[in-house]
Amino acid sequence: MSAEQAILQRWIERTLKSYPDGMAGFLGEERDPFRNPVGHTLRENLTTLLQELMGTMDQKRVAPALDALVRMRAVQNFSPAEAVRFVFGLRQAVFEVSGAVPDSLATRIDELALMAFDQYMSCREQIFELRAKEIRRRAQYAAFEEGEEP
């Protein structure tokens, strides 16, 4: 196993630990993306993020991967800190495998954490907007009930 693979493996394991006891087995092992959408989303996008952190940080790949992860964790009953903590899990994963975290990588991880926080906020804002939209729609129906046209 290459160092990069070992780091990825540890990063995924650390992230899985944020889920309740007994979940890591299923989320980590079931590979059918439709039977295990949470596990699949984690594996696929952490893989992409690590490739980019080690590579060129292509925003066209980083942004969607980070969005997929944060979008999911934004509705999974995590506190804001817990929802984005997985980014810092990479620092420990790299340290465990390599014994040190290069400065350049540490900077990129910090950058990624800030992006994750922005993305988390944007997902939460979207949830509130969607709620508001549903309430507005309900108000329209109520008005309709009072005799206005649909």
Partner: peptide
């Protein structure tokens, strides 16, 4: 299906949405 329960709905609907995305 009410707005006050939206987070539960988004979680529960994730597997369906995941297949739609595919």
């Amino acid at each position: 299906g009410t707005d006050e329960n939206l987070e539960v709905r988004l979680r529960g609907g994730f597997p369906r949405a995941n297949a739609v995305r595919y």
